[in-house]
Amino acid sequence: MSEELQLHLNRREFFSYLSVGWITFTAACAGMASLAFRFSYPNVNFEPEMEFLAGKTSDYEEGVDERWKNGFGVWMVKVEGKLFALSNICTHLGCIPNWLPAELKFKCPCHGSGYYMTGVNFEGPAPRPLERYAISITTEGLIKVDKTKIYRSEKGQWDHPSSFIPV
């Protein structure tokens, strides 16, 4: 009887060691997998500057200005007494819309989204208006555009004081 019990316990012990072993193995695999996952996110990457100085307010005429489009991906738009920095990334799938001065609209070549000069979408598949970047005037009187801060119309952020410069 006692011998049988002994055997039984041994077997149970054996299984518990085995399960500890398996749990450790699984945990080790999961740990390695998450390390590999974290490995795929570099801490630093070398992408263009997120802030730039965009001259003086007097440099801009009423309408859309494309001078910062190629370097920084920003349209400076002066309309209805406001100057703001409009992102040139289509809210649909991230293509670069073109400014069509004749039709007074931005038109995306990828799927045909159209935006008014203000950045509000009105045709095509774009789900929401273009984004605006934070814009301010430095102590030297120059315009500073900060692309790390984004203002979105559908969240009611376009009234935020740093999303435009009154002119």
Partner: peptide, 17 residues
């Protein structure tokens, strides 16, 4: 800076990484 697209592209847009 930390979503799946960043993992795929190693950046915020299609660049050298």
């Amino acid at each position: 800076k930390n979503d799946v697209r960043f993992q795929l592209l190693a950046g915020r847009f299609v660049g050298e990484p």
